[in-house]
């Protein structure tokens, strides 16, 4: 099998390498890719949408339909992970349980048959069997970092019209903060801030904001996702309506990406049990 794979890859790779001879030179401004469609975007993007970042314009306006399905692919992946892994059945944990005494940070092991603290106790909190030691340095550092990261992600989202950035990047940074919380503390802490149901609903709402904007355009009598028609609603002229709509759909994308990243992490890290995090 290995030899066959090697021969196959070498043969096909050789064919492609020989063919690379016919491709245009690297960085050639006169290549077809740079002369057919793309000059139109570069020349007209600002005029059409009053947004200097051409990538954001092409992403959320000229090819917004692709981008909507990109968010949909993420949503589908979130559903796929949930569907495949999630189970409410508790895994085997052995006879004993671990609790943390919150005021002191002391970890307590309760042997099988021992008396367990109340389920909603404010003083004792059940922790993972594979618990990580309580580390104030890591936890404090992350607690300080997370707000700044979240504000930064909002900046990336809001400033996407003028600088590299936009919905996906912002969503990933925002999702990473919640995952960072789960890694530095534990899964339960994260789940308390953002439950699985919230993550799922946010991801659906995020995609729905994008698709719903398109549907609104359709209901107002224009093509799907043609933001021009939203101008009266957004109290602006057509170019600015496009600019604002780009922001609206980017907010939807941010929500969807962030929520799905968190959702996938919840399911993958705990193998669907959502009791034991990493």
């Amino acid at each position: 099998m290995k030899k066959l794979a090697l021969i196959l890859c070498l043969f096909a790779g050789g064919l492609l390498l020989m063919n690379a001879h016919y491709l245009p030179m690297w960085g050639d401004p006169a290549s077809p890719a740079s002369t057919h469609v793309s000059p139109y975007f570069i020349e007209n993007a600002y005029e059409h949408t009053k947004t200097p970042n051409m990538v954001a314009v092409v992403l959320a306006d000229y090819r917004s339909y692709d981008t909507m399905f990109e968010a949909a692919v993420v949503l589908a992946a979130g559903f796929a992970c949930f569907f495949l892994l999630r189970s409410r059945a508790r895994g085997k944990k052995g006879g004993h349980h671990y609790y943390r005494h919150i005021p002191t940070g002391v970890t307590i092991k309760i042997e099988e048959g021992g008396k367990l603290p109340a389920e909603n106790s404010k003083v004792f909190r059940s922790i993972d069997a594979l618990w990580t030691p309580y580390d104030p340095i890591i936890q404090t550092t992350c607690r300080c970092l997370i707000p700044f990261l979240q504000i930064y992600s909002l900046y990336v989202l809001a400033h996407g019209h003028y600088s590299p950035g936009g919905g996906f990047q912002a969503g990933v940074v925002l999702g990473a903060t919640i995952i960072l919380l789960a890694i530095s503390h534990n899964l339960k802490t994260s789940l308390k801030r953002m439950s699985e149901r919230t993550a799922a609903l946010w991801s659906i709402i995020g995609v729905f904001i994008f698709a719903g904007t398109g549907l609104l355009c359709l209901l107002l009598g224009m093509d799907y996702l043609n933001y021009e028609v939203l101008a009266p609603l957004l109290l602006s002229d057509e170019a600015m309506a496009r600019s604002h709509s780009i922001l609206i759909v980017e907010v939807g994308v941010t929500m969807a990406v962030m929520a799905v990243m968190v959702w996938i992490y919840y399911n993958l890290s705990s193998a669907g049990q959502q009791d034991e995090g990493l």
Binding site: I42, V55, V57, R63, E70, V74, A77, A80, C81, L268
Partner: peptide
């Protein structure tokens, strides 16, 4: 147009990156 890079492949690849991440998530799940 000669002054600026071609924005279209960037857009396409943003989509492809996201698709790759989604595929990776499902692959790890399986």
């Amino acid at each position: 147009p000669v002054m600026y890079l071609n924005p279209l492949p960037h857009v396409l690849m943003l989509t492809a990156i996201v698709v790759a991440v989604a595929t990776l998530g499902v692959a790890l799940t399986l």
